[in-house]
């Protein structure tokens, strides 16, 4: 994997003649913690971070220009770097982000630790994040705002389909998935893809109803090449996702089993039906399942 697949291409930068006060506003509005500085030919000449802004506020020079206060010997990564090299960079330097430049030192992107992690997650298809790193992701406001699969910011209000799993009656489980199937067919999505999507969504939805002890939501985005589904809940969460993924593992109580659930096959089904899947959970905070279905393809296995 090359860095261009991981990095954020739409990097926000600033010109050296701007003031630190203006930078402060950009950081605040865009909710980021640093900005690369570029000259008129987009060549990288420095970087300003939130720490620089804090110092400027304390030192009373917030109206000074970026050029005077930026860090000039900025560490950047070449766009030809590999994922392995990027990881080594993060190990070597303690910075949280690196600007990415082309052969002529022109800024082409920016890469953060988070981007690297998300790229790895997407690559592996399914990963359970452990301890520190997991907490880092879950505690960040990004948890519910960013896609685990693509790393992209999710505009949930722009979802093509939304269903609120706001009921606790097991007899209703699957209503959302069934609606989603109808919706996809009405949008001209082919039968087979619609079927895979609805099976996997049905499993995820019933899990929310049966196991989460809470409510949740289904979001679906129809893309030209794929269907993207995210099912999330704010319930009790899964302690050990790896274990839960194992076919046959179930904590369903007897009354649920009598209704035909609790075979411990749900997550395995989702994995099989989708082309990419990530399950992330934090005990006490809920579960997020994201799945991607490439259109016009048969299910795996």
């Amino acid at each position: 994997m090359s860095i261009t697949e991981i990095m954020n291409h739409s990097v926000i930068s600033v010109r050296p003649d701007r003031t630190l006060r203006q930078v402060k506003e950009i950081l605040r509005i865009k909710r980021i913690s640093g900005l690369p500085v570029v000259d008129s030919s987009r060549k990288l000449i420095g970087i300003v971070s939130i720490e620089d802004i804090i110092k400027a506020l304390e030192g009373g020079y917030i109206d000074d220009t970026v050029e005077n206060r930026m860090t000039k010997d900025v560490v950047s990564i070449e766009s030809t770097a590999t994922l392995k090299e990027v990881i080594e960079f993060f190990e070597k330097w303690s910075y949280g982000r690196f600007p990415v430049v082309d052969g002529e030192k022109r800024l082409v992107g920016i890469v953060t630790k988070n981007d690297v992690m998300m790229a790895l997650l997407a690559k592996l298809g399914l990963v359970y994040l452990h301890d520190e790193r997991r907490r880092e992701v879950l505690d960040s406001p990004e948890y519910f705002a960013r896609s685990l699969l693509t790393g992209e910011r999710l505009d949930k209000s722009g979802a093509d389909f939304y269903f609120s799993i706001d009921y606790f009656d097991i007899n209703l489980a699957g209503v959302g998935a069934s609606k989603l199937r109808q919706f996809l067919l009405s949008k001209g999505v082919d039968e087979k893809t619609a079927r895979r999507v609805s099976i996997a969504t049905y499993e995820a939805e019933t899990n929310v109803v049966i196991h989460s002890g809470s409510t949740g939501a289904i979001y679906c985005f129809i893309k030209p090449e794929s269907i993207f589904v995210r099912v999330e809940d704010t319930g009790k969460g899964i302690e050990d996702v790896e274990l839960a993924m194992r076919e046959g593992y179930s904590t369903a109580p007897d009354y649920v089993r009598e209704l035909g659930f609790g075979a411990g096959m749900g997550l395995a089904n989702m994995k099989r039906c989708s082309d990419n899947m990530i399950v992330m959970s934090k005990v006490g905070a809920g579960v997020v399942v994201e799945m991607e279905f490439l259109r016009g393809r048969e299910a795996k296995g």
Binding site: A173, G174, A177, S178, R181, I199, Y202
Partner: peptide, 15 residues
């Protein structure tokens, strides 16, 4: 052997 509405919904989801 199940008689719940769920059976029908499951059937519907897979066609």
């Amino acid at each position: 052997g199940l008689t719940t509405p769920q059976v029908v919904r499951t059937a519907e989801v897979v066609g």
